[in-house]
């Protein structure tokens, strides 16, 4: 059993948890993820490692409630335990001193961006972070990202905080303004797609962290297939980070919706019986 040692509500639909998993905390690196299961009936869901504390033996995860399992997770408390917690999975981010790096993140992608930005900063890069949310209440971790970035820009779709608009609007201004050597984009698939199209125009090599549907997370099932450079890849072992400009975005967008109809059944169950 893997105990939740800390829980913090970041906004009405996003929760932060520190989970006791010392083996993972000792061996993980930025860019990797874990797979967890809440109880014996549970689905295996992947979540990015948002931070890790080898001394305390804990892993930080930040989860957005989107469907049945993530909502159920929101309702767990400090002291509760997950039945399974597996990791570290996936390859670590390739951190180097690239020069100037643009970190574009949106919605829940802000949390997984943090350890990467921190490592990039540590490696000597100039880190420019552009973060966005739908509105002020949904924005998380502006202060946290500020500690590891040289510059931070915030956008909201409705203009309730920071600049009104999308992260790509600000990213474009930065790309126009100065030479960027490398970019990272993490967030909803559609945001990553448009970030990728943008940086491609400016010929800035870009990494995205893909989040397809997964089961085992170890290369055994093929659920997480995506197409990169015309070849089929398994996101859980070949990724989750890939060259943004090689990703077949439309395929990835379609594969996210495989269980849409089914998910509604699970949510109906939740509404009837609670969690």
């Amino acid at each position: 059993m893997y105990k939740i040692v800390k829980k913090e509500i970041l906004n009405p639909s996003v929760v932060l948890m520190d989970v006791y998993a010392p083996d993972i905390a000792r061996s993980c690196e930025s860019g990797q993820f874990i797979v967890l299961r809440i109880d014996e009936f549970g689905e295996r869901i992947p979540l990015t490692i948002a931070d890790y504390f080898p001394e305390e033996g804990t892993i930080r995860i930040v989860t957005q409630a989107v469907g049945y399992t993530s909502r159920k997770l929101m309702n767990m408390n400090q002291g509760d335990s997950f039945i399974d917690f597996i990791g570290p999975l996936g390859k670590e981010s390739e951190i180097e001193n690239y020069g100037t790096v643009l970190c574009i993140c949106g919605g829940l992608g802000i949390a997984p961006m943090f350890p990467i930005a921190r490592d990039l900063k540590k490696a000597g890069n100039k880190v420019i972070t552009v973060m966005g949310a739908r509105n002020k209440d949904l924005l998380i971790w502006e202060d946290v990202l500020k500690t590891v970035s040289d510059e931070v820009y915030v956008t909201t779709d409705d203009g309730s905080y920071g600049r009104k608009g999308l992260v790509t609007d600000v990213a474009k201004e930065i790309l126009e303004r100065e030479k960027v050597d490398k970019a990272w984009a993490i967030g909803p698939v559609i945001m990553m797609k448009f970030s990728s199209l943008l940086t491609e125009k400016y010929q800035v090599p870009t990494i995205v962290s893909m989040n397809p549907i997964m089961v085992d997370g170890t290369g055994m099932c093929g659920a997480c297939r995506l197409e990169v450079g015309g070849k089929t890849k398994f996101a859980c072992v070949d990724g989750p980070e890939f060259d943004a400009h090689e990703v077949n975005w439309d395929l990835s967008l379609r594969r996210m919706n495989i269980y849409k109809a089914k998910e509604e059944l699970a949510l109906a169950k939740a509404e009837k019986g609670g969690f």
Binding site: F41, G42, R44, V215, D216, M220, C221, Y259, K269
Partner: peptide
Amino acid sequence: TRVNLMKAYKYPEYDTP
């Protein structure tokens, strides 16, 4: 795996579809 290990044949009693 979905069916055997995750018991999707008992969905939605089990959570995996």
